[in-house]
Design a protein around this nucleic acid. Structure first.
Lengths: 179, 179
DNA sequence: GAGATCATGTAACCAGTTACATGATTCA
DNA sequence: TGAATCATGTAACTGGTTACATGATCTC
């Protein structure tokens, strides 16, 4: 159910193929939603049956025949209704924090290594998001309502990654100080 | 697999019943792991079969017969090995950001209402976590290695909730300014 | 006495992951 | 020519959610 809304949200901004949707969930919008291509192809089929999206097959433009999905009026309507409904808090499952919670079982250095590694990953994600921002938001259409809303979510992405980086730095320092 | 480690991490700090584990996942440690009691009872059975935890039934202390679970040496060993293994980035699925991403479909006021509601929820969570901190960390044992590690995760909890609150405030203000 | 909380579970279903499969195109 | 990327899918399995079930104790 929730994946359906996430796909419709992407399609409310632009038409995409399943493959492109999958790439976005693994990439730029990955800080608020993730899904594999298998999940997406399965869900797109359902959405088409419910007439919330419509599909158009293109054989000449890309390397292989590509199926482009568009949101329908019904899809937009259902999505708008959902936006105005009560929102559940996001589910979080963070292996790194589980590890820290049981950190007394291992050497401090093991924890420091984990934190440094994770910090590097988040730093990389942050840089990618900053590139994305330049790419999308230094275009002249930056004042569109669509871009305004997308920009709100991007800002949360920056904050999210930066929070992790800051916490990693603080924790590494604390662990070093107690050595 | 990951739930197993999350349960073992809790049990590495203290012995708990399934019910108590469930309450922690819905409450204080909920900012890094969530799980329902149905999942937990199911997983505890598996962990017992694998000899990673052992169970002790208590009939007199509580209101009903209670099954307390303890981590075994084997459990601690497996957990320590896992802590030193490569860590996956956490999976995030945030309905609120999905909604904002498609925010151009609705009135600004709908978005503001959503942000205000969510802000309230995170504020409540933050307050609960601050109570938890007082309760646990103003005790004299605060310098234990266990409490040191638990405190690291708590700090991330504060940062996490505060990040959401700040972002909600910023976004509400931006939406009001463009009205 | 009613409703909340404590306490443990089963069953069915749905969402998400892993493994497997295919084939074209692009680039070094 | 071999590896990476584009592009779409099926099948089996595992993890997570929802619905249902039971019964004691505690608090107003």
């Amino acid at each position: 159910m929730a994946l359906a809304h996430a796909i419709l949200s992407l399609l409310s901004n632009d038409a995409y193929s399943g493959y492109e949707i999958a790439k976005q969930f693994q990439g730029s919008v990955g800080y608020f939603w993730q899904a594999s291509h298998q999940q997406i192809y399965r869900e797109l089929k359902k959405l088409e049956e419910q007439k919330l999206v419509k599909m158009e097959e293109i054989s000449n433009e890309g390397p292989l025949n590509k199926k482009i999905y568009y949101i329908t009026d019904l899809g937009e309507q259902k999505l708008a209704e959902w936006i105005d409904s009560e929102t559940e808090l996001g589910v979080v499952r963070e292996d790194l924090l589980v590890k820290m919670f049981a950190g007394h079982l291992v050497d401090r250095q093991v924890l420091i290594n984990q934190l440094e590694q994770q910090r590097r990953l988040y730093q990389k994600k942050l840089l990618k998001l900053q590139e994305k921002e330049k790419e999308v938001f230094h275009a002249p259409q930056s004042l569109d309502k669509e871009h305004f809303c997308q920009n709100l979510t991007l800002q949360m992405g920056f904050r999210y990654y930066q929070t992790w980086i800051d916490w990693c730095d603080e924790s590494i320092e604390k662990l070093r100080r107690t050595e």
